[in-house]
Amino acid sequence: MKKLEITIKPEALESVKTILFENGCSGMTVLSGMGCGNQKGDAEESTVFKGGNFRINLLPKIQVLAYVSDKVVEQVILSIHENVSSGNVGDGKVAIFAMEDIMRIRTGERGDKAL
């Protein structure tokens, strides 16, 4: 089992959701945030706040947390690359974490049955 932390541009969310559902991932958690990486954020705009002029170099990002079986993790990340990559800086990242165990709270099921 693997935990995926998928950080993407907001417009890529529907594609990522479709990829996860097509590969048997029946659930996910979606978080909204701001961030910057190699693109260094939006350098064009500045914001006036309490009389000061500030450059806020953070762009909107979405983080999708999903748990997938070992059987499909390669297919999921390849599909994300093929369908979400624009070839431009800022497309995002996928972090893959090994999981020792998982439990569904409602039923007590563990391991792959809890996915």
Rank of each mutant, 00 (worst) to 15 (best):
I96A: 13
E109K: 15
L13S: 02
V16Y: 03
M103T: 15
K93D: 01
V30Y: 05
K71E: 11
A98N: 10
E45W: 14
A12V: 06
V76W: 05
E74D: 10
C25D: 04
K93I: 07
T47S: 06
T18E: 07
E44W: 14
K2V: 01
E14D: 07
I102L: 14
I96S: 13
N38I: 12
M1G: 11
R110S: 13
Q63T: 06
F54H: 08
K71L: 09
V64S: 00
A66W: 01
M103W: 14
V68A: 00
I102G: 13
D101W: 15
N23D: 01
E11S: 14
I96K: 08
N23M: 02
L58K: 05
M28V: 12
V73W: 05
K50L: 03
K17S: 09
K40T: 06
A43E: 15
G90P: 10
R55P: 02
G52Y: 06
V48E: 09
A43N: 15
I77M: 01
K3V: 07
R106H: 10
T18R: 12
N53C: 12
E11F: 12
S26I: 02
K61V: 00
G92R: 15
M1L: 11
T18N: 11
F97P: 12
C25H: 02
I6T: 09
F21A: 01
V68M: 07
K9T: 09
G111T: 14
D91Y: 09
A98V: 11
L13T: 01
N83Y: 05
I105C: 15
V48G: 09
R55F: 03
N83K: 09
S69C: 03
T29S: 05
P10T: 06
Q39K: 07
K2M: 06
L31V: 04
G37K: 01
T18Y: 08
I6D: 04
G35Q: 10
T7R: 02
G37C: 08
G35V: 11
H81S: 08
I102S: 13
L4S: 13
M99E: 14
I6K: 02
E44M: 15
R104I: 15
E82P: 04
L78K: 04
